[in-house]
C-alpha cells in the first residue's frame, strides 16, 4: 500500500517538474527569437512596470526584463549542464579509480585531495578559482568544475567499492578479462548510473551556484543576460522598480524547483521501482 502511494507520489513529482521545466526551456528557447526586443540593447522607455507590452517590465536601460530573463535562463542552464557533465565524467572516473585502487599510493593521494576539496564551502573555493581565472563564462565553468568533480568522486568511490565486490565482477576476473575491460565494461557502467541520479540533484545546486557567483560579481558579467547578475543589477532599484530583480529571481527559483522535483522524483522512482 505505502509502496504504491509513494510510487504515485514520485511519478507526480517527476511529471510536475518535467512540465515546469519544459515550459521554462520552451520560453527560453522562443523568447529571444520571437520577441522583437533585444536582450542586450535597450530600445524601450526605462523602468516601466510590468504591462501587456513588457510582461516583466523594463529595466533602467530600457531592456525588456522578460526577454532578458529567459535569455539568461538559457545561458544558466547551458552552463550548468556543461559544468555538471564535465565534473560528472571526471569525478566518476577518478572516483572509480579510487574505489578500485584499494590501498595503493595513488588512490590514497586522490582520497586526500577529494576529501580536502569537499571540506571547503563550495562557493568559497569557487570564488578562489574565479579570482585567478577572472569573472567570465570560462571563469565560472572552471570554478564549478574544479570544485565540483570531487563530490562526484566521493559518490563514485563509495559505489565502486561496492560494485568491485559484486560477483559479476569476480566472474569477469575469473574469466581472465584484463583490468581495463573489467573497469570499463563492468564496473564503470554500474557506477555511472548512480552517479547520474546524483548529478540530477547537483544540477539544482550548480544552477544556483552559477547565479550566486554572478550575483556576487564574480561570474558572468553584465551586459550579458544572466539571472544572478540581473538580480544584482536590480538591487539598488529594489524600492522603485522591484520587477527588475524579482522576476529573474522567480524564474531562477522556478527553474531550480522544476529540476529539484525531477531529481527527487527520479531518485524515488529508481529506489522503489
Amino acid at each position: 500500500m505505502r509502496w504504491a502511494s509513494r510510487l504515485k507520489d514520485a511519478d507526480r513529482m517527476f511529471l510536475i517538474g518535467a512540465l515546469l521545466l519544459a515550459l521554462i526551456v520552451l520560453a527560453s528557447a522562443l523568447a529571444p527569437i520571437l520577441s522583437s526586443f533585444d536582450p542586450v540593447r535597450g530600445t524601450s522607455p526605462p523602468m516601466r512596470a510590468p504591462s501587456a507590452g513588457h510582461l516583466f517590465g523594463t529595466d533602467n536601460l530600457g531592456r525588456d526584463v522578460f526577454v532578458r530573463a529567459f535569455a539568461a535562463t538559457r545561458l544558466d542552464m547551458m552552463l550548468a549542464v556543461v559544468a555538471v557533465g564535465v565534473s560528472l565524467i571526471v569525478g566518476t572516473l577518478v572516483g572509480a579509480v579510487m574505489g578500485m585502487g584499494g590501498r595503493s599510493k595513488v588512490s590514497g593521494f586522490l582520497n586526500l585531495v577529494v576529501d580536502s576539496i569537499n571540506a571547503f564551502p563550495f562557493i568559497v573555493l569557487a570564488l578562489g578559482v574565479v579570482a585567478v581565472v577572472g569573472p567570465s563564462v570560462p571563469g565560472v565553468l572552471s570554478a564549478i568544475i574544479l570544485t565540483g568533480w570531487a563530490r562526484y568522486a566521493r559518490v563514485a568511490r563509495a559505489r565502486t567499492a561496492v560494485i568491485a565486490d559484486a560477483d559479476f565482477v569476480n566472474a569477469a576476473r575469473l574469466l581472465g578479462y584484463g583490468r581495463s575491460r573489467v573497469m570499463i565494461r563492468h564496473v564503470f557502467p554500474n557506477v555511472y548510473s548512480e552517479s547520474f541520479a546524483f548529478a540530477l540533484s547537483e544540477l539544482v545546486i550548480v544552477i544556483l551556484a552559477i547565479a550566486s557567483l554572478s550575483f556576487l560579481g564574480a561570474g558572468v558579467r553584465p551586459p550579458t543576460p544572466e539571472l544572478g547578475a540581473m538580480i544584482s543589477e536590480g538591487r539598488i532599484m529594489l524600492t522603485r522598480a522591484w520587477w527588475i530583480s524579482v522576476f529573474p529571481g522567480a524564474v531562477l527559483a522556478l527553474a531550480a524547483l522544476s529540476i529539484q522535483l525531477i531529481a527527487d522524483g527520479y531518485e524515488r522512482m529508481t529506489r522503489y521501482a
Binding site: 544572478g228 529571481g249 531562477l252 524547483l257
Partner: peptide, 13 residues
C-alpha cells in the same frame, strides 16, 4: 522543497 530550490541570496533580497 520550495525553500531548498530558492536561491539563498534571492530569499535574502
Amino acid at each position: 522543497s520550495l525553500s531548498l530550490a530558492m536561491p539563498g541570496f534571492f530569499l535574502g533580497l
